[in-house]
């Protein structure tokens, strides 16, 4: 699904190397988790994959289903099936949530040569998906993320994911700012989307999220590299012992 080879990335505006050779293979249907201390490059990895500006790829690359995604515009990556659930979903005053969701869905369908949904079809679809995530009609009517609580913003991210049905989902600290109930709700939303043809890359600081979204693999990232890969037990080890032991091992 997603293949990252020796990916090296620096900031565009300053001489600061963030990723120093990341290698990662994600197979269809699998859930990979990345954990790591602050500043290890986890969020940068998600931004570079989804096409945010301000970064420069200095070596290596990334392909999704064989296509070089780093050459694509952000909207082309989205239409190809890549989705990033933001750590900090962006508030956009003046743009209605419904207008936004419909524009995004139809733009992707158009890019893929599929039939666009009319207003009635879309409304039916979005209502059904919103109900599962306990998103009420009022939230759909408001401007994108404006006045949403932290939990509402994250639920809105998962709603977008459910509507857009991407193939490769990257979740960047989706658990941050969530209380226990909200985390459960969001996790259920994610788990409902798990399928053979859809892969996940879950970036998190805490093992707790991985109790809800059970990963197939856990990677530890530090200083711009993946330093350790294992099963779910690796997350438990981090939870119990911190990163010190793992960092000491590679130092």
């Amino acid at each position: 699904m997603l293949s990252i080879k020796n990916l090296q990335v620096k900031l565009e505006d300053e001489d600061k190397q963030i990723l120093k050779g990341v290698n990662l293979e994600i197979e269809p249907g699998k859930v990979h988790a990345i954990m790591g201390p602050n500043g290890s490059g986890k969020s940068t990895l998600s931004y570079v994959l989804s096409g945010k500006g301000g970064y420069e790829v200095t070596a290596g690359g990334a392909t999704m289903l064989g296509d070089d995604i780093l050459e694509m515009e952000p909207e082309e990556r989205a239409a190809a099936g890549l989705f990033l659930a933001f750590q900090y979903p962006v508030e956009i005053p003046g743009v209605g949530n419904m207008t936004f969701l419909r524009t995004a869905l139809n733009a992707q369908k158009k890019a893929r040569g599929e039939a666009e949904l009319n207003a009635a079809e879309f409304l039916k679809l979005v209502r059904a998906k919103a109900k599962d995530l306990k998103i009420d009609a009022d939230m759909l009517k408001r401007p994108v993320n404006v006045g949403f609580s932290g939990g509402e913003k994250k639920r809105n991210e998962i709603l977008q994911m459910a509507l857009l049905e991407p193939k490769m989902c990257i979740l960047d600290e989706t658990d941050s700012g969530l209380d226990v109930d909200a985390m459960k709700l969001v996790s259920e939303g994610v788990n409902a989307l798990r399928s053979e043809g859809r892969s996940f890359l879950v970036i998190t600081h805490y093992q707790r999220l991985l109790d809800h979204i059970k990963p197939d693999y856990v990677h530890i990232m530090a200083d711009g590299r993946i330093i350790e890969t294992g099963g779910p037990e690796l997350a438990l080890e981090v939870e119990n012992n911190g990163y010190a032991d793992l960092l000491a091992k590679v130092a």
Partner: peptide, 11 residues
Amino acid sequence: ALFYLRSRGVP
């Protein structure tokens, strides 16, 4: 905000 919209597929 522009990147957010584009990341959802809006050209």
